[in-house]
Measured scan of single mutants.
Amino acid sequence: TSIVNVSSSLNVRSSASTSSKVIGSLSGNTKVTIVGEEGAFYKIEYKGSHGYVAKEYI
């Protein structure tokens, strides 16, 4: 489990790309479970499925 480190919110994306669809967002200090990594993104558990967040904010 890791913590989201942002002051406002962090986009959760459908794939490991800044141009991919935003499927949701997480607020600062939210706990997330990392299940993998791809480039500059972590794959996380998100709403019963998976999403991707930028590593620099975790």
Rank of each mutant, 00 (worst) to 15 (best):
T1L: 12
T1A: 13
T1I: 13
T1H: 14
T1D: 12
S2I: 15
S2P: 09
S2E: 07
S2N: 10
S2H: 15
I3T: 11
I3V: 12
I3W: 13
I3K: 07
V4I: 11
V4M: 09
N5H: 12
N5D: 09
N5V: 14
N5P: 08
V6C: 15
V6E: 08
S7Q: 13
S7K: 09
S7D: 10
S7E: 11
S8N: 11
S8Y: 12
S8P: 09
S8L: 11
S9R: 14
S9E: 11
S9C: 15
S9G: 12
S9F: 12
S9T: 13
S9H: 12
S9N: 11
L10A: 14
L10P: 07
L10D: 03
L10G: 06
N11E: 15
N11P: 15
N11K: 14
N11S: 13
N11Y: 13
N11V: 15
N11W: 15
V12K: 00
V12W: 01
V12D: 02
V12T: 01
V12M: 03
R13Q: 14
R13L: 15
R13N: 10
R13E: 03
R13V: 12
S14G: 09
S14T: 08
S14D: 14
S14M: 13
S14H: 11
S15W: 07
S15Q: 12
S15G: 12
S15A: 13
S15Y: 08
S15D: 12
S15E: 15
A16F: 03
A16S: 07
A16P: 14
A16R: 02
A16E: 02
S17R: 05
S17T: 09
S17E: 07
S17Y: 08
S17M: 07
S17G: 06
S17F: 05
T18K: 12
T18E: 14
T18C: 15
T18A: 12
T18Q: 11
T18P: 14
T18D: 13
S19H: 11
S19Y: 09
S19N: 13
S20W: 04
S20Q: 02
S20K: 02
S20T: 03
S20Y: 06
S20H: 04
K21M: 11
K21D: 11
K21W: 08
K21A: 13
K21N: 11
V22A: 05
V22I: 15
V22L: 07
V22W: 04
V22T: 06
V22H: 04
I23G: 00
I23P: 01
I23N: 01
G24V: 03
G24C: 06
G24S: 02
G24R: 01
G24N: 02
S25L: 13
S25R: 14
S25C: 15
S25Q: 15
S25A: 10
L26H: 02
L26D: 00
L26W: 03
S27P: 15
S27Y: 10
S27G: 10
S27C: 14
S27N: 11
S27H: 10
G28C: 13
G28Y: 13
N29C: 14
N29T: 08
N29A: 08
T30N: 07
T30G: 06
T30D: 11
T30K: 06
T30L: 06
T30A: 12
T30M: 11
T30C: 11
K31C: 13
K31F: 13
K31L: 14
V32M: 06
V32L: 07
V32T: 03
V32N: 01
V32W: 04
V32F: 08
V32A: 04
T33V: 14
T33N: 10
T33M: 09
T33I: 12
I34W: 03
I34F: 03
I34N: 01
V35I: 14
V35K: 05
V35F: 05
V35D: 02
V35W: 05
V35A: 04
V35R: 04
G36I: 02
G36T: 04
G36F: 03
E37A: 07
E37R: 05
E37H: 06
E38P: 00
E38I: 07
E38M: 07
E38A: 07
E38F: 07
G39W: 04
G39Y: 04
G39T: 03
G39M: 04
A40Q: 11
A40V: 07
A40G: 13
A40P: 09
A40H: 10
A40S: 11
A40D: 14
A40W: 06
F41I: 01
F41C: 02
F41M: 03
Y42P: 00
Y42M: 04
Y42S: 01
Y42T: 01
Y42V: 05
K43L: 08
K43T: 03
K43Q: 06
K43V: 10
K43A: 05
K43F: 04
K43E: 04
I44D: 00
I44C: 01
I44H: 00
I44F: 06
I44S: 02
E45C: 12
E45P: 04
E45I: 13
E45K: 09
E45A: 09
Y46A: 00
Y46H: 04
Y46I: 03
Y46M: 03
Y46E: 01
K47D: 09
K47H: 10
K47Q: 12
K47S: 07
K47N: 14
G48F: 05
G48I: 03
G48P: 03
S49I: 11
S49V: 10
S49G: 15
S49C: 09
S49F: 08
S49P: 01
H50V: 13
H50I: 14
H50P: 05
H50C: 09
H50L: 09
H50G: 04
H50T: 09
H50M: 08
G51C: 03
G51K: 01
G51L: 02
G51S: 02
G51H: 01
Y52K: 00
Y52N: 01
Y52T: 00
Y52S: 00
Y52V: 00
V53W: 00
V53N: 00
V53P: 01
V53S: 01
A54V: 09
A54R: 13
A54N: 11
A54S: 09
K55E: 01
K55L: 03
E56A: 11
E56K: 12
E56R: 11
E56G: 07
E56D: 09
Y57S: 12
Y57G: 14
I58F: 13
I58K: 04
I58P: 04
I58A: 04
I58Q: 03
